[in-house]
């Protein structure tokens, strides 16, 4: 029994499992390659991006719906953790646990409102939501510190041990990233992941087998919020400072592009995307003035080179819709009563 299942029958989930191992392997190997304080700082950034993109992958990659709210969720997690610790003396452990819960609730609320919209309008709704969050970060000055940012966030600590050493910061981020990746892998290879993909392939058939698209997509969006909340809290404890500009529209776009270019919907996508984002960040520190221009050009070239990569999911679903249109044309034929002629033709 097991031998049969271990055979090629599981190629797709086996590929996902391989990609998970690569992800986990990189989390272990990278800090061995370079372990200076600076390098560890970079790897910590990468682990945070990994969590962020693993979350985005649920909605963007698996459910096939572009979300521009991830940067806003990221920021919400960071500000929630920061404000809780700075203004209310909440212990960092508790803040790390509560920030994702808050972000998940916000994501579910936005999801309930926008989940039934067609994909481009869903994207615009998430853009609107992300922008509202971004603007609030800058405008609620008494709470957030406004454009100047929130300062004085304590380091993460548990049982009196402060996570100030770069290796400890990295360890915390990497462990959470690994747990997140394993959980994402589990979901992707189980029936929930299958059903999320199924909905993109054939909406009627997914409904007919009892998979509720609304609930599944809401789940995917909620999860993307939860992961963003974890990443945000880590970001707050890592930088010990948060400011609105980290979570702007450009970041939202960058996250989507990084994931799509690296392979949305696959287990390997988030880690490759995280490496890409980290590379951009390092590069941008040296060429700040030219960064947006170069980023834009690279991004445009990528979209022109891999149009299916960006829009593959969407195009496939567009074809589905055309099929459905054909079906309603069939229905119209059903309606347009023309009785006696056709059967003879069918018989011959």
């Amino acid at each position: 029994m097991m031998s049969r299942l271990a055979g090629p029958a599981r190629t797709m989930s086996r590929r996902a499992t391989w990609e998970l191992w690569i992800t986990l392997g990189l989390l272990v190997v990278l800090p061995m390659l370079a372990a200076t304080d600076y390098a560890l700082h970079i790897w910590t950034r990468m682990a945070i991006f990994l969590i962020l993109l693993t979350g985005l992958n649920f909605i963007q990659g698996v459910a096939g719906m572009t979300s521009l709210a991830q940067a806003g969720f990221f920021g919400l997690g960071a500000y929630a953790a920061g404000i809780a610790t700075v203004r209310h003396d909440v212990p960092p452990v508790l803040a790390l646990a509560l920030a994702p819960v808050l972000v998940t609730l916000v994501a579910l609320l936005i999801g309930v409102l926008s989940m039934r919209l067609k994909e481009i309008y869903f994207t615009m709704a998430t853009l609107g939501a992300g922008f509202v969050l971004y603007l609030l970060f800058g405008r609620m000055v008494e709470l957030t510190g406004g454009p100047n940012g929130l300062v004085g966030i304590p380091p993460f600590s548990v049982g009196g041990v402060e996570f100030t050493e770069p290796i400890m910061k990295y360890g915390l981020a990497a462990v959470l990233a690994a747990i997140g990746a394993i959980a994402a892998h589990n979901l992707l290879v189980s029936r929930t992941g299958r059903a999320l993909r199924a909905y993109g392939a054939s909406e009627p058939a997914a409904l007919a087998v009892g998979a509720s698209p609304f609930r599944l997509r809401l789940l995917a969006f909620g999860l993307s919020g939860f992961y963003a909340g974890v990443a945000g809290a880590l970001e707050a404890f890592d930088s010990r400072f948060v400011s609105p500009s980290t979570f702007d529209f450009m970041t939202a776009v960058l996250l989507v592009v990084a994931l799509v270019v690296s392979g949305a919907g696959r287990m390997i996508g988030p880690i490759l995307g995280a490496l890409l984002l980290t590379g951009i960040e390092v590069f941008a520190a040296d060429y700040a003035d030219y960064e947006p221009l170069i980023m834009g050009i690279v991004f445009l070239v990528a979209v022109q080179l891999f149009p299916r990569g960006v829009a593959g999911e969407l195009a496939a679903r567009r074809e589905d819709r055309r099929e459905r249109a054909k079906r309603s044309a069939d229905l119209a034929a059903d309606v347009a009563v023309d009785a006696p002629t056709t059967l003879k033709a069918v018989q011959r």
Partner: peptide
């Protein structure tokens, strides 16, 4: 597709 054109317009906006 309109969706891919839309995404590319973001790139051009950044440029």
């Amino acid at each position: 597709t309109p969706a891919s054109i839309t995404i590319a317009t973001i790139a051009i906006a950044v440029v």
